[in-house]
Design a protein around this nucleic acid. Structure first.
Lengths: 235, 235
DNA sequence: ATGCCCATAGTGGCACTACCAATTTGGGAG
DNA sequence: CTCCCAAATTGGTAGTGCCACTATGGGCAT
């Protein structure tokens, strides 16, 4: 009989270990800069091999969540807001709870970036970009009936819009926000009404981009994110 | 005498392996979605333990650069622009060459985000934020003579500015760009003239934020990034 | 009492082995 | 030709031993 797990630990493999490590760190209330238990301690506490603990630590270290010092131990990173955004993606994937304010801030960042991006898209969009957007819009017809497809459709639309700026980095910056809200996006688009409303807004946005009407596009997108951004909050 | 390495491979440990793996992948010209050599192949080719190869793979997988499939092998991720920004940070740290256009795009993204952020900062900045900015400005006096300190000063200034928005996520989004241009930033600020010019601009920007003059702040910052952003390019 | 030095215990880094589990593959039975 | 199963391959897990580095603390000299 295993010990009772503190949180939802249904993941398998290293992800499970990752969750257990982070959960334990939180429960004990370590502060940034603190020394946390050694690899060997985690190994026997979690009942897994040291290699697995080290792989989990490697992931956490690459995201600047913690730092391993040879001969000393493992320490939480000093300035916690230098921690990579990817930690939030990771935490959402292994069902680790987040403070509610984080979601609001994520929506704000998305709005800042995407609203400015669409101005660039209006300037630079090529015919190929318009074709890609039309293709995504058309795919809605197929995905209307399928809830699981609707969320992917929304995701594809916004990413295609970002790609129309011609700046590949922009896509990479925004992508994590979509990844970390994936589950909530699915439940948000569960109702047909929301799907259709969102789709209509998408169509209007594409029209503005086609007409190179940056003012209109910005207005529409800001309103759209203000509404659809709700899927970041509790659904 | 060690064997001659294909690229700049002065790193130690897993970072060296990481570089060798990515370098080999590039040299062989694998496309997104392709299957790359197995862990055991890398193990004997690089002459290291399998655990080390796995740790490197773990890092690359957490950044969505590749994907490991049990029983099948290791594959490069399909859509390469879903790859995390952290890969660029990683590559810059292990001296892996990047396409020049990437740097330009990074500067553009920085400008988009920071210019909008400073508008928020003008609205929301608290007295504590102003004090923090003043403290950073004051630290320039100490760091003027020290080249290595000057780059850190610039870094601290922009991050403090971002924190004045009250949105912690913004800091995390922009931080990778500073990390990946760290070496170039150092060489850029090697000349005293650049340091002083940059500092004067910082002072003007803080004044605008203090006066809540968003228009002026935006104008100054956009010009500042346009100039200082050069440290992304070859110095 | 103070300051230095070094033995030591503990830590992460590395390498190797063995085995498990999933997948793919290909050959043989039908 | 099709289907199925056995074998080979691959990543996943586990454990061991050792090395290099670091911090600690006790003992020694001052």
């Amino acid at each position: 009989m295993e010990a009772k797990m503190p949180d939802g630990e249904f993941q398998d493999g290293v992800s499970r270990i990752l969750g257990q490590i982070v959960t334990l760190i939180r429960q004990r209330g370590y502060e940034p800069g603190d020394r946390i238990p050694s690899e060997r301690e985690f190994t026997e506490r979690l009942g897994v091999g040291r290699a697995q603990v080290r792989e989990a630590m490697t992931t956490l270290e690459s995201m600047r969540y913690l730092e391993r010092r040879r001969g000393s131990g493992v320490f939480l990173c000093k300035d916690s807001d230098a921690t990579s955004l990817e930690t939030l993606v990771l935490f959402s994937q292994i069902d680790l709870p987040m403070e509610p304010q984080v979601n609001e801030q994520c929506v704000e960042v998305r709005r800042i970036i995407e609203v400015q991006a669409i101005r660039l898209a209006c300037e630079r969009r090529s015919m190929a970009d318009l074709a890609a957007l039309d293709a995504v819009l058309a795919s809605f017809e197929d995905s209307d009936s399928f809830t699981e497809r609707a969320a992917d459709y929304d995701y594809a639309f916004h990413l295609t819009l970002l790609k129309a700026t011609g700046n590949d980095i922009l896509v990479r910056v925004v992508n994590p926000f979509y990844l970390m809200s994936e589950s909530r996006r699915h439940s948000f688009f569960a109702t047909s009404e929301r799907r259709i409303t969102s789709h209509r807004q998408h169509e209007a946005i594409v029209k503005a981009v086609r007409d190179r009407d940056a003012e209109q596009a910005e207005r529409l997108l800001a309103a759209h994110i203000g509404r659809v951004g709700d899927h970041f909050r509790t659904a």
